[in-house]
Nucleic acid binder design. Structure first.
Length: 264
DNA sequence: AGTACCACCTGACGGC
DNA sequence: TGCCGTCAGGTGGTAC
């Protein structure tokens, strides 16, 4: 689930439940998720430090615990963040726990262990080293159009390419293309300025709507593709059956009735 | 440059 | 009910 809107919700969770609190204990039962560090080293670095500020770039979440020192979290396909009271049990598959000075514990939970925890000097440097493009939510229309210049491939692949813009995954690329009424394999180069503007406003609306709904699957508007993003469902706009194709190596859902633009 | 495929790891779901 | 194959919201490496 963790694409940009989900990670933004985790960031707000961090702000509400952990920022301003000091770390009193670190427990890393799954060392394999730690990149460039060990449970011991991470514990030594974080112990006694106050979490001071949160940040997000694309699908990466950051927490500053000292000047020039940020904890970095990526959630892979199934990771999430949870807060539990000292008296409560940790969720299954908890891979990293920060015990805080108010008695709560912040749990990084990644059942498939496809995520990772890292450290960085600051989010901007990390994003640059990682080769990430600008955050998809921070883009302006002009910059969005510039990112499309000279691109050869399909629009779904383009939206999901983290080096071009960061934060969009399989689900929200499908949603954006549904809102913009574009077939997933439409060539980026075939879009004129007005169509790119329409795609940009669809993207912005999809991301902000998802965040306002708490990235909660239960609270998605019914005119979104998301509640209907499965085999056998029908389009909320025109009633045509939703289809699934392979695009950019992923299963892409779309409505053949109203997403009619083709490659070329 | 762009896309497909596999690997990583575990859980959920549909068919039999 | 139980077993088994298939698929899954991410990234990185390889191959074409």
């Amino acid at each position: 689930m963790p694409e940009l809107p989900d990670v933004e919700i985790y960031r707000r969770h961090l702000d509400r439940h952990a920022i301003g609190r000091a770390v009193v204990e670190v427990h890393a039962p799954s060392p394999e998720i730690l990149r460039h560090t060990s449970p011991h080293a991470l514990g030594r670095q974080l112990h006694g430090q106050r979490l001071e500020e949160s940040g997000r770039h694309g699908k990466y979440l950051f927490a500053r615990y000292a000047p020039g020192h940020w904890l970095v979290m990526h959630f892979g396909m199934t990771g999430r963040l949870a807060s539990v009271q000292a008296s409560d049990e940790l969720p299954p598959h908890t891979d990293l726990v920060l015990a805080l000075d108010d008695g709560s514990r912040l749990a990084y939970v990644a059942p498939r262990k496809l995520g990772m925890v890292d450290s960085a000097e600051d989010p901007r440097t990390f994003a640059a080293e990682q080769g990430l493009g600008p955050d998809a939510l921070a883009l302006g229309r002009r910059e969005f159009e510039e990112l499309a210049a000279g691109r050869r491939g399909g629009v779904k692949c383009w939206l999901m390419n983290q080096e071009i813009m960061a934060g969009i995954g399989n689900v929200y690329s499908d949603e954006t293309l549904f809102q913009a009424r574009l077939h997933p394999k439409t060539a980026v180069a075939a879009l004129d300025s007005a169509e790119l503007g329409n795609l940009f406003s669809s993207l912005s609306r999809v991301l902000t709507t998802a965040i306002e709904a708490g990235a909660d699957p239960e609270r998605r508007p019914d005119d979104f593709l998301l509640p209907h993003r499965r085999r056998g469902a029908t389009c909320p706009r025109c009633g045509t059956g939703i289809e699934r194709i392979q695009a950019c190596g992923r299963g892409a859902f779309y409505c053949p009735g109203c997403q009619d633009r083709r490659p070329g």
